[in-house]
Design a protein around this nucleic acid. Structure first.
Lengths: 197, 197
DNA sequence: ATAACATACTAACGTGTGTTAGCGATAAAA
DNA sequence: TTTTATCGCTAACACACGTTAGTATGTTAT
């Protein structure tokens, strides 16, 4: 009888969630079926329900675990006694590394959150809105300090975050530059576009 | 008996494609059903098939009409006798305006092309790859000229294109700055991040 | 060894999907 | 007005989906 392998002291549920992330990234949430997921896990579809409540629960877990990581990071960064540009750079580097090392989850959280259903959907949208506002506030401070050139802060946030989601293309490309080079290039362009010269 | 309205000398098929774009953007290609589309058009689902061959055909039309517009533009820009930075700025402004004024189509083409099926899928991916290479080549030239700082050109392209797709958030936001302000802010940040100082 | 539990299986359900066939209604051409 | 082509309808199809019920198998604790 097939059994879900649990290497590296992961629970069976965690194995499922991880495989779900890969699948949701590859095919999209709607197009990925529970039968697909079952096959990836090595089990029959119905067996998954011994470990999870529903397909949507998988999406919840993915979206909110990612969102929480970003919220904790901005909590931390806001408290630091550094310049605005340093704070922004720190956040960007965190985003970049999350996108590099937790690609599947972050990507799914970014692109598939629309398929959350409603207590969770509004919640997620709220967290997202608040996060962006706090990010924009850091930029605003930098503009007042003359560290950063006079631009519309929400637009800047939107550019930064979406630019980073482009790391998706890096992952898919055959000839990759190294992760470190990628990080430095992105920081150079993005921070370079903000600062007063 | 209900009939598809064709204002502004559009064919009935064009009306369907346009509504499909809106629907695919809102719900995603897979989650948007032909019955949803039929309701949006004001007709029964089966009636749509008097005008289109399949659901996927709708996606083809959207993806390739967008792709062709970008390819024609880069054809035009490459021929101009201007600096690399001017060429890039021109392309970026085109991208920005496409994203502002043909939001639905461009967004769908960007996010839902994965659901194309295979003669079209490879074709689309090819066009996309080639476009990005040509864009990167312009940047490379700019780097050799010392117009542009020494960065990895493919990474720069990826940042630019994804940053612009963030205009999606601008469309959804309640308090929008004007389209002109948006354009100038984006250009300022993106071009500012590239140029040598 | 036995009891208790966790996990996987088969079978099936109701529902929603894209799409086709065939028929009536409307509009355009003769 | 008659003919013809266009367009929309109802009904139905075959299929894939998420999920549940009930049962068998394997694992852990007594």
């Amino acid at each position: 009888m097939a059994r879900i392998k649990t290497d590296n002291n992961l629970t069976r549920k965690e194995v499922i969630v991880t495989k779900a992330a890969t699948l949701f990234r590859e095919k999209g949430f709607k197009a990925a079926s529970m039968r697909d997921l079952a096959e990836a896990v090595g089990v029959e579809a119905a067996s998954l329900y011994n470990h999870i409540k529903s397909k949507t629960e998988l999406l919840h877990e993915l979206c909110f675990s990612v969102a929480n990581r970003f919220l904790h990071k901005i909590d931390e960064v806001e408290l630091e006694k550094t310049s605005s540009v340093e704070k922004i750079e720190k956040l960007l580097r965190f985003h970049i590394n999350e996108m590099i090392h937790h690609y599947e989850e972050v990507y799914v959280s970014d692109r598939e959150w629309k398929h959350l259903s409603d207590p969770y959907l509004s919640n997620f949208q709220n967290q997202r809105r608040i996060y962006r506002k706090r990010f924009a506030a850091i930029i605003e401070t930098g503009i007042k300090n003359k560290e950063i050139k006079s631009i519309d802060a929400p637009t800047a946030v939107l550019i930064m975050l979406h630019a980073i989601s482009g790391i998706e293309s890096w992952h898919r490309s055959v000839q990759k530059i190294s992760a470190e080079e990628l990080e430095e290039n992105m920081i150079s362009i993005l921070v370079g576009g903000l600062v007063n010269r």
